[in-house]
């Protein structure tokens, strides 16, 4: 896979720093600092692209204005053969989304499998990587599996929310309205994948949002941005030539707990039968 797929996907690779600059926030001194850096590195096209992005203001793009949620339908692809269990994704998610201690929005599981037995571990979700491990049986294969909210299309968590705080956006992300959630915990019970939790400070439901605040600005989720091996990929099913879309359409992909018919939108390549 092209390593550049981890960079924010915009029209020209040179524009990547500019969109990153626009995405980093509304602070004007920061904008100035970065636009100076852009001019130093040269490139009129970069300047124009950066200028138009910056000139549009760091004002957030609302649906109907610059960002139209009808034009996107996101999906996530994970290749378990590539994951090295470094935990960078878990750390990046925690930094990006202020995930509280003791909970995870994304995590990694290590599977050690033999003919007689199997062993799974995930120390703190894999946030500090994984320690060496001895198992009491002959292990024939071992691998890492990153997991997160699957943003299912027919999800039980939205079905059971009593106040409509949990919903699915038109571009495919399952979200929780933190101002509407009453903290009843029903969605936490209903999620078959264990991806939800009650936030200890806000006492409302919380989970992976596919970094909605990033993807709606043309960035990738933080976990995808930092993954060093290309295990995690984020794509748009409505975009022509999207590699994630291509893989889902043509390669052999698997989903978790398919028998529950939740229609998850996180697809796995090379998933082993031991993984639930």
């Amino acid at each position: 896979m092209d390593p550049k797929i981890d960079e924010p996907h915009v029209s020209a690779p040179e524009a990547a720093p500019a969109s990153a600059a626009a995405a980093t926030g509304p602070g004007s001194t920061r904008r100035d600092f970065l636009s100076l850096a852009i001019r130093l590195s040269g490139g009129a096209m970069v300047l124009v692209a950066g200028g138009s992005a910056l000139g549009g203001g760091a004002a957030p793009k609302a649906p109907g204005e610059a960002y139209d949620w009808e034009e996107h339908l996101y999906a996530y692809l994970i290749d378990t053969d590539k994951c090295i269990g470094c935990g960078s994704c878990v750390r990046a998610c925690k930094t990006e989304n202020q995930v509280p201690d003791g909970f995870v929005r994304t995590w990694i599981e290590r599977y050690v499998v033999g003919m007689e037995d199997s062993h799974v571990d995930s120390p703190n979700g894999g946030i500090d990587g994984f320690p060496p491990l001895q198992v009491g049986f002959i292990a024939t294969k071992s691998f890492f599996v990153p997991k997160m909210c699957n943003h299912c299309r027919a999800t039980p968590c939205i079905q059971v929310c009593p106040v409509g705080a949990s919903y699915r956006t038109k571009d495919g992300a399952v979200m929780v309205d933190g101002d509407r959630c009453i903290g009843c915990g029903y969605c936490v019970q209903a999620c078959p994948y264990g991806s939800r939790f009650i936030h200890p400070a806000t006492h409302t439901a919380s989970k992976c949002t596919w970094c909605y605040h990033r993807i709606t600005k043309g960035l990738k989720p933080a976990c995808v941005t930092v993954c060093p091996t290309g295990t995690r990929q984020f794509g748009d099913l409505k975009r022509e030539g999207d590699p994630v879309r291509h893989a889902i359409e043509h390669d052999h992909v698997a989903i978790m707990q398919g028998h529950l018919l939740t229609e998850p939108q996180c697809f796995y390549l090379h998933l082993d039968k031991e993984v639930r």
Binding site: C161, P162, V163, R180, G183, H203, T204
Partner: peptide, 15 residues
């Protein structure tokens, strides 16, 4: 409830 003061939401916007 995590947010007990929002309990009435179940009657205001029941899903």
């Amino acid at each position: 409830l995590g947010q007990p003061q929002r309990g009435p939401f179940v009657i205001v916007t029941p899903h």
